[in-house]
Design a protein around this nucleic acid. Sequence first.
DNA 1: GCGACAG
DNA 2: ATCTTGTCGC
Length: 225
Amino acid sequence: MYRPYHPPADPIVVRDLTQQQEEMRTRVRIEPLHAEPTFIAGCDSSFPTPETILSVFVLLRYPTLELVEKVYHVGPVTVPYVPGFLAFREAPNLLKAYEKLQQKPDVIMVDGHGIAHKRRMGIAAHLGVLLDTPTFGVAKSLLTGKFEDPAPTAGSRSPLLDKGELIGEVLRTKDRVLPVFVSPGHRCDQANATRLAVACTRGYKLPEPTRLADHWAEQFKKEIR
DNA sequence: GCGACAG
DNA sequence: ATCTTGTCGC
């Protein structure tokens, strides 16, 4: 089988970005949500062309999950994809889309990891610090850590550990379907992240905020051409 | 030195 | 992420 190949990244750039992550890391706060959310957002980015990034934010009322807003922003790609540094490529454009929301969310579900990252600075944590808003990540595949496969029934979960430290939870959102990886981003803790992910699941592998952000990204992509 | 590697 | 045909299961 073939695995994705990532071209070597410029060492000096990587060193600089790593330093930036270490600084942001000191600003991340893992704590319970202050209150039940009234609005929860989902976001996602796609690339209509290799040099164009399209970011989407959807706003849902909680806990009904009724869609109340959907916005997007298109911009130029300025940073290549490098594992561990996804936020530097997508966050700038996501911020532009976020500004277009009439109503700001109480918490944001980000597609990607939160603290389930080598330096505990996945895109969900990164975005949370930049916006100073509660965030958590729901990723479709593993980046860092080890885990035991959760039981095959929806709702099953198992801890995601990195050197003995709990950095996330592997959650089976649908029977016999590959699980998702849930981790706190900023101003959120593991219990709330997992609880919200479960509460936002509606029979699909992806919780509604992320699933709808994904869906609208596809629609907007057609719309801009 | 050899793998692993979100989107 | 993106490209891209067929195939499996409810």
